[in-house]
Design a protein around this nucleic acid. Structure first.
Lengths: 241, 241
DNA sequence: CGGCCCCTGAAACGGAGCGTTACAAAATTC
DNA sequence: GAATTTTGTAACGCTCCGTTTCAGGGGCCG
């Protein structure tokens, strides 16, 4: 029912293609961003939540197939691959790697749009657990235990702490980005997948509610600190278990 | 949200290009500075915080690729490389070295501006690598312990000293540049990432507040000394732990 | 040595950022 | 469809921070 615009990431070494596709998708009501290579892609995925990734197969350095396998292992976004025209091998290997669709270059932007919509429709609205690449694991910090598979939180004594969906998403965003300052835009992107409105303070209120449940002394937070003028930060190290 | 103007460093041996780009970027609301070679770049990076570095590939002495690799290893700023027109090799090697984008010379300044904005948007406001627990994130001086991962300060007895965000940033600036005189411009750049206004004395006031918390006798400071006419200096050695 | 100027320290004030509560709308459950 | 829970918005008060202002003190000159 949440019909927010889909968020697409284009990974291609060719600047012209990146810009063309980005502009085209934005012109059709989507949020689109681009990355020039695998490193940039990873950096962008670290602080943003995407509904779909478009990968060029032919790239210097890490090629699209490698990145596709990585995406499949880590996240759950659907992937569309851009292959060289008529190259059956790429197409087959791409699909084996877990790509959801492929498109031979050069392509008609309208066709890309159609395939994006098809893949998003297929993968459905419930395809994506927010903010968690590398799932199935428990995130442990200061004795607390966040089970990302069950969406449950247990305190150091092992007692279940009831969190609302929003509180869980917020805590998960921090737990997957520990020891980093996250501003309100990033947190909103990670938890709700939307952008901040002018006087949006919903993050503040949610965090206040979360602190009441997990901080020993909510007035002097030790787990999630406030960085005035910057945002918030999980101040303790997080381990996977 | 802190929306301060981005701070760009241009590294190019050609003086005309440096001036042209610097003036152009400033005319578009950015803070821009330039360096003529690798040495000047390193010197500038030591006391300034930059959001992006523009590197010329072809330079006498250390070329852009070498510098790019160095930047990638040390810092976290994104890099845009200026390559010779149509030189595929440079472009590919540049991206492999970790550049976030490239631009063939000669280029249209407006296009450079667009590239810069795109890269900044992609890399986001905080692009630091996630701190690994146990990595040397503590700075120790005279028994005091500044934990940069947790943004916490402990006195020699191990008692937590409450610092405001601004006080912490200021102390961190000194602790990462010990035994060096830092003037107000440098401190403002390191802590707030902005330039000094004509009669800006905010650093003085913050330092006064900081001294009240960490100096045994704030009237006769021993940790952070005043250098009349020059600025301030952390007067004790700092070790990583 | 004394007077002057300029630099710095610190108090005081006001504005902005943030925490929290209250309330209303929306979603979920039964 | 009603009751309950969750979530966003508005509002109030507190804290932090930048600016202003004044006082003290060091350096330079005579």
């Amino acid at each position: 029912m949440t019909d927010r615009p889909p968020h697409i990431l284009i990974v291609d070494d060719d600047r012209e293609i990146r810009d063309l596709v980005t502009r085209f998708l934005r012109g059709h009501g989507m949020r689109a961003e681009s990355a020039a290579d695998g490193g940039a892609m990873r950096r962008r995925l670290r602080t943003g939540r995407f509904d779909l990734v478009i990968l060029d197969v032919m790239m210097p350095g890490e090629d699209g197939l490698t990145l596709c396998r990585e995406l499949r292992a880590a996240g759950s976004q659907p992937v569309i691959m851009l292959t060289a025209l008529g190259d059956e091998t790429d197409r087959i290997v791409g699909l084996e790697m877990g790509a959801d669709d492929y498109l031979p270059k050069p392509f008609n932007p309208r066709e890309l749009l159609a395939r994006i919509r098809a893949v998003l429709r297929r993968s459905g609205p419930s395809a994506e657990p927010p903010a968690v690449p590398g799932d199935g694991a428990c995130l442990v910090f200061e004795g607390w235990r966040l089970d990302t598979a069950r969406r449950e939180l247990r305190d150091p004594e092992g007692v279940l702490v009831a969190l609302s969906a929003g509180e869980y998403d917020l805590l998960a965003a921090f737990a997957t980005h520990p020891q980093r300052v996250l501003n309100r835009d990033q947190l909103l992107d990670l938890t709700k997948g939307r952008e901040a409105a002018p006087f949006d303070r919903s993050v503040d209120v949610q965090l206040s509610r979360l602190r009441r449940k997990i901080e020993p002394d909510p007035a002097n937070p030790t787990l999630i600190k406030t960085i005035r003028g910057g945002g918030y930060m999980m101040a303790v190290p997080v381990a996977r278990a």
